[in-house]
Design a protein around this nucleic acid. Structure first.
Length: 418
RNA sequence: GUGAGUGUAGCUCAAUGGUUAGAGCACUGGACUGUGGCUCCAGGGGUUGUGGGUUCGAGUCCCAUCACUCACCCCA
């Protein structure tokens, strides 16, 4: 085969596209109930935007971005995530001047040059949400509530919700020192990856999977014990709200987010049916990012849903099915074919999905194709029928049949109980 | 970037180193000359991922390479 998709990207074919449409439509409906409006930002941005927001030393920036020079020599990057672009747009268009909170959602492809595996692709799709201008933990809880509502609506309840607070620029550095202190007592017992993490991002040692490391960090200091008064209160209020909504969650003080810009609240929605990449949705608060981009100090919080992962769960639950046309015309002879061709257009205009068999073949094989296509109703038109001024119909589901006046096709459909 | 596994028809898979690489499903047609599903019959569809090597002979063994899958790393 000469041409195929490049590594880590994929075609999405029907009937799976039905599932994608359902997910997107449900997200739009639920999110708008919560006051969110769609924002569409470009897939291309200046590289600098992502380097500054995600963090220079993160893996995403260091080795996973699709970056290239445009024809004028500027460094351009295919977005690896959505938040940076939305923040840029928020500042660029002066949206901070509008009444807070400003609430946005977006749906679209993201790109990261990673080795593909289950639930991880080089082009993947996210539904993301951002709220600007309110620092209250009520918003954080509202977001969790919205995710829950969304997942419930598409039929995925019983996913686990994990939350954490990673503090702010006041308390986190202090905790970081304590943690480094603790780790230094046993660096040489840690795995190779953790030796590296110890140097680069000590917090990451916390969610190492190696048993010996797990054993060692069991006694490590916990971020939640080192939060400053402000962060502590924020985290408690957040939980109070979750309880008020009767949302089941667990605190995971070892949950570390990969992007540098997070502050205070972080959370993940995971499923144990997904393999190693088990996060369906994840997000958190980023109170300093807008300011660091040159905007006014603006607290913000958001999350992203991984669509491919969602689809995996969903298609196990209810395998996607093609929906056939309501009506299928089977014809014999040129005159009948022309009659059907015109009817086809009329009834489609009236809102009925309809097909006809353009191939000149036996009645039997046309019937067979009508069945394969999943049609509900077949109209049979031949010379006999036309000369009598009628068409025959057959209901493929109820196995009933009859005749109707050939002028009355549309009326028949309008009264038909599909 | 690291490791392991797998590459044969559109899909899922067979084929001890030995004839012309098969089956099920799917597709097309027929049995039923104007009636779907069930059944039966027939047909189309393959550079066995690619390139080397070993051998009288390779889908099968060896090497390389590419792709896919899963895991690590990291993350939605």
């Amino acid at each position: 085969m000469k041409y195929k998709t490049i590594k880590g990207v994929q075609d999405i074919l029907p009937p799976e596209t039905f599932l994608w449409q359902e997910v997107e439509q449900t997200a739009k409906e639920i999110f708008s109930l919560y006051g969110f409006k769609e924002i569409r930002t470009p897939i291309l941005e200046f590289t600098e935007l992502f380097v500054r927001s995600i963090g220079e030393t993160t893996d995403i920036v260091e080795k996973e971005m699709y970056t290239f020079q445009d024809r004028a020599g500027r460094s351009i990057t295919l977005r690896p995530e959505g938040t940076a672009s939305v923040v840029r747009a928020y500042i660029q268009h002066g949206l901070s001047q509008l009444p807070a909170p400003q609430k946005f959602y977006y749906i679209g492809p993201m790109f990261r040059y990673e080795r593909p595996q289950k639930g991880r692709y080089r082009q993947f799709h996210q539904i993301g949400v951002e709220v600007f201008g309110v620092d209250s933990p009520d918003v954080d809880a509202e977001l969790i509530d919205m995710i829950r509502a969304f997942l419930q609506r598409i039929g995925l309840d019983s996913l686990s919700i994990e939350i954490n607070s990673i503090g702010c620029e006041q308390c986190r550095p202090f905790y970081r020192e304590r943690l480094i202190e603790f780790l230094s007592s046993g660096v040489d017992t840690l795995c190779n990856d953790c030796q590296r993490r110890y140097q680069k991002n000590p917090l990451r040692v916390l969610d190492c999977k190696v048993p010996t490391c797990k054993e060692f960090i069991k006694d490590a200091p916990r971020i939640t014990d080192f939060l400053c008064d402000g962060c502590k209160e924020h985290f408690q209020k957040f939980q109070q709200r979750l309880k008020a909504l009767e949302i089941q969650y667990s605190i995971n003080p070892e949950m570390v987010r990969g992007l540098d810009y997070y502050t205070r609240t972080t959370f993940e929605i995971t499923s144990n049916a997904l393999g190693a990449q088990n996060a369906v949705a994840a997000g958190g608060r980023y109170d300093r990012l807008v300011e660091s981009f040159g905007g006014p100090p603006t607290p913000a919080v958001g999350f992203a849903i991984g669509m491919e992962r969602l689809i995996v769960l969903l298609s196990e639950l209810k395998p996607p099915r093609d929906k056939g046309p309501m009506v299928y015309f089977v014809t014999l002879g040129e005159e009948a074919s022309e009659f059907a061709f015109k009817e086809l257009s009329h009834i489609r205009s009236a809102g009925f999905s309809a097909e006809m068999d353009f191939r000149r073949s036996s009645l039997k094989s046309q019937m067979r194709r009508a069945d394969k296509a999943g049609a509900r109703l077949v109209f049979i038109v031949g010379e006999d029928e036309l000369s009598k001024g009628i068409v025959k119909y057959r209901d493929l589901r109820e196995h009933t049949e009859g005749e109707i006046d050939k002028q009355g096709v549309l009326d028949f459909l309008k009264n038909f109980n599909f």
